[in-house]
C-alpha cells in the first residue's frame, strides 16, 4: 500500500507542478513556438515578474491581482524589447539564430544583475492568506501555495487558446512565422503582429512570475533552473500549440515527480533534458506540433 500511496501522491504532485511549469513556459510557447525567436531570457523575465509581484505584495496587494496588473506594463516592455530586437537583428541579416541567442542570453544576465543590484541576493517571498495551509483529500496533502497557481494555468491557457483561434490577430500570430507575405497580402503588418505577440509573451511572464513566487521564495537567479525545462515543454508540446503546452508540462511534471519519489531528487533536473533529447530524436514535431 505504501507504494500506491507514494505513487498517487507523486502523480498529484506531478500534475500540480506540471501546471505551474506550463504557466512558466507559456510565454516561450509564443516567442519560440510561434515566432521562432529563441528567447532564453524568458525564465529571467518570469523572475522579473516575481519581483514586481513581490513589491506590490509588500504594499498588501494579493499576488494574483498584482500579476494581472503587472501584465500590462510587461506587455509594453515586450513591445519595446521586440522593436529593439527586430531593428538590431531581424531587419539586418534576417535574424541569425546564434546572434539572437546571444542577445537574449545577454538580456537574461542583465535582468539577473539588475535584480541583484536593486534587491540583493536574499530570498524574497510574499504573504497571502492561503500560504501555509493545505488541502487534504484522503492521504493526499497539497499545499494551497501550489494548488492556486496550478489552477491558474488551465484558465490562462484556455483564454489564450480562444484568442489564438477565434480572433483575427490570433490567426495572424499563428501565421506570421510561416508566411510573412501572406499577412501583407491580407492587409496586415507582420512587424506589428510580432511586436504584439512578443508583448503578450511578456505579459505571460508577469502572470507566471506571480505563480512562481506564490509557490515559494525566489532569488534573482531562480530562472536558471527553468531554462532547460521550459524549452523541453515547448519542444515536447510541438512548436505552435498552446493547449499542448499544458499537456507537455504535466507529462514532464509527473515524470520529475516520479523520479524524485522513487529514484532520487538529484536526478530530477535531468528529466526535462532527457525528455527534450528523446523528443528531438524520436518525434521532432512534438506531441501536437503543427505540420512542418
Amino acid at each position: 500500500m505504501l507504494i500506491l500511496d507514494l505513487g498517487l501522491n507523486a502523480l498529484v504532485t506531478g500534475v500540480v507542478l506540471g501546471s505551474i511549469y506550463a504557466l512558466v513556459a507559456l510565454g516561450l510557447a509564443i516567442t519560440f513556438g510561434l515566432l521562432h525567436i529563441p528567447n532564453v531570457a524568458h525564465p529571467a523575465m518570469v523572475i522579473g515578474g516575481s519581483y514586481a509581484v513581490a513589491i506590490s505584495n509588500s504594499y498588501g496587494m494579493d499576488p494574483l491581482v498584482a500579476g494581472v496588473l503587472w501584465a500590462i506594463p510587461f506587455y509594453a516592455l515586450g513591445v519595446i524589447l521586440y522593436e529593439f530586437y527586430s531593428r538590431s537583428f531581424e531587419s539586418r541579416g534576417r535574424g541569425n539564430t546564434l546572434q539572437s541567442l546571444t542577445l537574449f542570453f545577454g538580456i537574461s544576465l542583465i535582468i539577473e544583475v539588475g535584480l541583484v543590484v536593486a534587491f540583493g541576493t536574499d530570498l524574497r517571498s510574499i504573504r497571502a492568506g492561503y500560504i501555509g495551509h493545505s488541502l487534504t483529500v484522503g492521504f493526499i496533502v497539497m499545499p494551497y501555495r501550489f494548488l492556486i497557481p496550478a489552477a491558474l494555468a488551465p484558465v490562462v491557457i484556455f483564454l489564450l487558446w480562444l484568442y489564438m483561434t477565434r480572433t483575427n490577430t490570433g490567426l495572424a500570430i499563428r501565421a506570421v512565422a510561416y508566411e510573412e507575405r501572406a499577412l501583407q497580402i491580407c492587409g496586415l503588418d507582420p512587424a506589428a503582429i510580432k511586436r504584439h505577440a512578443f508583448g503578450i509573451a511578456m505579459a505571460m511572464a508577469a502572470l507566471a512570475g506571480a505563480a512562481l513566487v506564490i509557490t515559494g521564495p525566489i532569488d534573482p537567479f531562480a530562472g536558471r533552473a527553468h531554462i532547460g525545462r521550459v524549452f523541453a515543454v515547448v519542444v515536447l508540446a510541438g512548436m505552435g500549440t498552446i493547449p499542448g503546452t499544458l499537456v507537455a508540462a504535466i507529462l514532464i511534471g509527473v515524470a520529475e515527480s516520479f523520479v524524485m519519489t522513487f529514484l532520487s531528487p538529484s536526478w530530477a533536473p535531468g528529466v526535462a533534458f532527457a525528455i527534450l533529447l528523446a523528443t528531438l530524436g524520436l518525434r521532432p514535431n512534438g506531441l501536437f506540433g503543427a505540420l512542418r
Binding site: L171, R174, Y178, E179, I185, C186, G187, L188, A290, R292
Partner: peptide
C-alpha cells in the same frame, strides 16, 4: 489584392482560417 506566385498560403492554418485571416483585415 494579390494572388502571388507560389500562392503563399499559410500552411498551418485551415482553408477557412486562411480566408478569415484575409477577411478580418481593416478593409
Amino acid at each position: 489584392a494579390s494572388v502571388p506566385e507560389g500562392r503563399r498560403l499559410v500552411p498551418n492554418l485551415t482553408v477557412e482560417e486562411n480566408l478569415l485571416l484575409a477577411g478580418g483585415g481593416p478593409r
